[in-house]
Each structure stands twice: as C-alpha cells, then as structure tokens.
Design a protein around this nucleic acid. Structure first.
Lengths: 343, 343
DNA sequence: AATAGCACTCGTCACCTTTGAGTGCTAACA
DNA sequence: TGTTAGCACTCAAAGGTGACGAGTGCTATT
C-alpha cells in the first residue's frame, strides 16, 4: 500500500469502515467521535476525514451526507486494519457436521459446503470442484447402450465420476468393449487425466497400435471419453444477497444473476485464486465481475491428497463483514482439505 | 368452467387479458374500445366490464384505475379464449439445434433444454429429469478407492449414471468386488431400479443367501447403491424474471428464489404434472408455490422409449404470454421425447 | 495542534395542489 | 331494450413548497 497514515487516522478509518459495514449508511464525523470515545471532537475528526478523502479513501455521496469508504479503503482495511474474529465453537461444529453428513461422494460434500458457507456468512457461498483433469486416473469402462451407442464411464482416484455418451462408427460387441477397457486401464494406470489424454493421442500415432484394430478403436473412443467438460460449480444462497440493502434495486441484481449464469466468468476468477495459498480477497472492481456492482469475493483454495486444487469462498457486497467472513472461509477451506485427503 | 358469457363479453375479456399481458398495466374501458375497433363506445364496454367484475373475472386496484384480470380470468382465458401462436420455423430450429448440440448424455441435453426454454419464452425454464427409479437397470459396478472405501456406479439403460461412495465394515479385494458385481448384474437384469431395490431387500431375507458371505455382503453394499437421491432439476434463466415489472420489488423476488432453493417444492409440482398428458397450466395459487407471488407454470411431461417420464416447462408471472409459451412448451416436450427415444 | 462556533449545503419529509385517467350513473336516443 | 353521450366524482401520481436537520468547511480561539 502506498498510503501512510498516522495511528489516529488509521483508527478513524477503521471506525468508519466498520460503522459503514454495520449500517450501510454514510457515517458522519460526530458518529465517529461518539462511537470511539476517542476524546476527540467531531471537528477534529472532520479534519482527518477531509484528509482521508483527499487520499482517495473516502467519498461523500453529497455535501451534507456522511462519508463512505472507497474500494481503496476496503483494500487498506483488509490488508492492515481488520481484526479477525475467531471462528466460534458453534460455527466449527456447523461446518464439520454439515459437510460430513452429505456423505455421498465428492459432489455431495462440495454442495453442502457451499450451502454451509452461505449460512454462516449470510452471503452467497460458492465452491468450485477440483479440476478433474489433474486427478489421477482410476478406471475406465464402456457399456453398450444400443446400436452404436456406448456409455463411457471415467473414474478418478478420488471418486469423481464422469460419463459420456459416445456414438461410434461401427457396432461393438460387449466382449470387445471389455477388452478395450482392460487395455486402456492398464495403459493409463497411475497417470493423471491430462496425462492419460496425452498418452492416448501419442499412442494413436504409434504404428504398432495403428494396425491393431481393437486398440485403434479403443483409442479413438477413449479419446472422447477423457475430454473433460467444464468444472463443476456450486452456488448456494442466492436469495440471501437480496437481504443486503444495496441490492434491493432490481436492475442491480440482474447484473449479478446474469454474471452467474455465465459460469465462465466464475472460472476466470477461479484460476486466479488457484495459484496463491491462503485466503484471497477481491474487492469491487478487482473481481472484474460486473463493473459497477460493488461485489466482493473472499476465497481460499483447498487441496486434496493428490494435490489437485479446488476453490471455495463467499460472494457478497463490498460492504461485507470481512472480520468474520475471512476466518470462516479460511477454516472451511482447511476442513474441506482435510476431509478430502481422507478419501 | 361455470361461467357463461355472451360472445361480446368473451371478446372484451380476451382484449383485456391480452392488453394486460402486453403492458402490465390496468386496462381501462376506452383502451378496450379503441383497440378493438369494435364499434362499441367506452360506455358500453364499461357496462360489460362491471358485469365481468361481478363474475369475479376482473378487479380494479382502486376506483380510478383500469381493471386487471383475476386468476379466474386467466384460467378462463387459457381454457377457452387463447389463440395459440404457431411455433415459428426459427424457434423450431433453435430448439432442435440447441438441444442436440449438447450431446454429452442425458444431463447435458436436459440442461440445454432448460436454457432453450428460457431463451424462447423469456421466462424461466425448468426441466426435471425422468426419475431414475423407474428406469431399467443396466449395470452396477464396484471400485475400490481405498481402505474400506468403495465407489458404486449404477447405470440405467438410458445412460443415466449414479455413483455413490460407500464405507464398508471390512476391506474388500478388487476380485471380490468384481464377483459381487457379476452376481448383482445377473440378478437385476431387466428390472427397473425400484424393482431392483425390492429384489435386493427380498434376497437379504432369503436363507440361502444369508449364509453365503459373498452374496450377503454384496447385497448389503448394493442396497446403499440403489437408494436413489433426489431427482435432477435444471432451472435456467432466473435473471429473466427480473425483467418482469411485477417482480422489480426485492421482497417479492426473494420469496421466489427461496422457493427454488428448496427443490423439494419443485418435486411436488412435478408429481402432479406427471400423471396427465399434454400441456398442463397452473395459474397463480394453483401452483401452490408461494402464496401471493403471482407465479404461473406451463408444463408438459416428456417420455422416453422405456416409458419413464420427466417434466419440462416454463415459470413466469401469471401475466404470461400464454399464446406463445404454450406452443413452445408443447413442441419442446415432443422434441425432447423424440430425442430421448432415439437413445 | 485541537476545538468551538457559525454559515452554508443539500437531501428528506410532510403537506399541499394539480392533473388526468377512469369510473358509475342517468338521461337521451335508435 | 340495448347503446351512447354527458357529467360528476374518485383517486393515484406528479410536482411544488417549506421546515428540518445532519453534516460540512472555514475561521477564530485556546
């Protein structure tokens, strides 16, 4: 941060940000003076506030209203002011029990996690499943569903399953499909899905296999099977965002919902979060979500035993209760990481 | 319907409903007189409207506004007034190409269908997948993922896949799992998933199998595997509903969104739609969705080759463009039925 | 450097009037 | 008898006015 502030200015900025987070209304100089019992008069606070405004940390919606924090102020706040709350015993229990109860497979756990995040934060919870492609290959299988229709089932070592309907040029006997499966299973043992795909493409060029009809067919089919579709995303608690006063306006909300229906945007965010460790925070325009919408994002990645990475977090207004959301996201990411590594 | 109306009254009611659908504003007597060029004066129309109000087909929000249709009027309108539009060539192409392009399996098609419904109607599209339970069993398989952790994969003859992580009391060798799979596959050949489940429970009581360790273990595990979770539901175009003026109010929308997050409610609706053939229409309180929200639902079921049934439709305001939505839903249901029976 | 005082700004609220779309009723008309 | 013209009435929406007060910036004072 390029701002240098006296201790007093910092305290006042903190007071303003926290007041505004609590009330969603512009905060005036006297409110700050009163609240903090700082033995400072409102006039003094006014001077400081004028100063902070000049630094681009505050703005006033109009002359005679109080002031509200800018994005820059939130950034400064989360970087160096915020006092993180502890995750309470109750919240911990809530996280652990809910995520575990889901039980049925990876998707179930992640979906429940996203709901939990939403409940505890009172904002929107989001979870992006670990990319299948970096998972280790476990098993592939082909089932004949009808004339020239094959169902390919691909399983990763973490229990994620992807299935794909494939139409083939010729009809295949069930026994043929079993043999194909055996051949491919052996070939791709121990590789990640990405590596497996590369291996298949490589093998397709190989002369030896080109002249073995069974193999070349198997490769052609499996190439489709291992082409993975978009990652799974779980978003829960969309209704909660309507509780926030700044989104009671319909036009504004529409922007947000539309952003979510194009899940592609989510994936952009995802990829940024993936690289860094710990809790990442994106404030307002930093999210590059919808220009003017005043959305913030608190995320953390989670990892599994095999080092594949997913992302979870909370989406809410810029005016978000960072002091409690950050620890919740952090804790949840740790718990999910632990639970998944048990698989 | 218990209302009997003269031809003229019907025309006027139709005019009012259609005007209101188009504008979302109370329609007055002069507007009707003008619009229809009925060679009727506004005064006459007023008399008729007063009559219609007495019959419970119209209400006025206040003395000096126009009148708006009641639920009863919409009911009457869709039952005997509405002139259904043809599905245009463009729309047909849109439906066919989009649904087909999805390609990858049942889920993909249905998701794309729901998006298409939303795009063409400009309301919300919803698709409920055919209930897995009435599908014919095709294949079951167990994969060992780790110590006492088994992934069960259940496939129906239509290519729907369900997988479930099962924790077992003892550890099982891969070969043992293969044998279990063979045994169960043979046992459940040709049954529906529901029947298969019953068969398993039956077999568990059977003395002969109780003393065969392999079998009894297989049964215990598979019992979990065939216990199906909630049906899959695809809802798309939630943002579109914000375009409707009657939902620009945040509190109202919140109701709706919350209704959708508890997908259970959807399933109630579903089960009603399942029984009847053709397009079903639920207006306002008939949906039993959220009391006061003024939501309507136009649905149709679709069927697959094996006679399992799913539901698709459009959700929008009571003030919905029925004349175009009904044909779209009808046509889409037919197309989806045809596409699925090709599988 | 901190504060008290003061003039000034500007949004909010309560109250009012005006406007006009729409109604119901009645009397005249075909 | 059904239709229409006319008229008084109603009521929401829109616009205008002025008091109010929260909040500011500036300046003189401590």
């Amino acid at each position: 941060m390029d701002v240098e502030l006296s201790e007093r200015s910092r305290q006042i900025l903190e007071a303003i940000v926290e007041d505004y987070i609590a009330t969603a209304e512009p905060v005036g100089s006297s409110a700050v003076a009163r609240r903090h019992a700082l033995t400072l008069s409102s006039a003094t606070v006014r001077n400081v506030m004028a100063n902070l405004e000049e630094l681009g940390l505050l703005t006033s919606p109009h002359t005679s209203a109080g002031r509200i924090p800018t994005e820059k102020a939130y950034r400064f706040y989360v970087d160096s002011l915020v006092a993180l709350r502890q995750v309470s015993r109750d919240e911990k229990r809530h996280i652990i029990s809910h995520c575990r109860q889901a039980g049925s497979g990876l998707s179930g756990i992640l979906k429940e996690t996203s709901r939990t995040l939403s409940q505890l934060s009172n904002y929107m919870g989001i979870v992006v499943a670990p990319s299948f492609t970096s998972d280790v290959f476990r098993h592939i299988e082909f089932l004949r569903l009808g004339q020239r229709k094959i169902l390919a089932i691909l399983v990763s070592s973490k229990g994620a399953v992807q299935n794909r309907l494939i139409e083939t040029a010729e009809d295949h006997e069930p026994e043929e499909l079993v043999r194909m499966g055996n051949y491919l299973n052996e070939m791709m043992q121990g590789l990640t899905i990405t590596q497996a795909r590369e291996r298949i493409l490589e093998e397709m060029k190989n002369e030896k296999t080109q002249y073995d009809q069974l193999m070349s067919r198997a490769l052609r089919i499996s190439e489709q099977a291992v082409t993975v579709e978009g990652d799974e995303i779980f978003v829960e608690g969309q209704a909660r965002i309507l509780d926030q006063p700044e989104f009671s306006d319909a036009a504004r909300m529409k922007e947000i919902y539309e952003a979510f229906e194009q899940k592609g945007i989510m994936l952009q965010l995802l990829s940024r979060c993936m690289t860094a460790d710990g809790v990442q925070i994106y404030i307002g325009s930093e999210t590059s979500l919808s220009r003017s919408a005043g959305i913030s994002l608190v995320t953390s990645r989670f990892v599994t035993s095999s080092n594949t990475v997913g992302m979870l977090g909370v989406i809410g207004p810029t005016r978000m209760g960072y002091s409690s959301v950050i620890p919740i996201v952090d804790y949840t990411a740790r718990m999910v990481s632990r639970m998944l590594s048990e698989l």
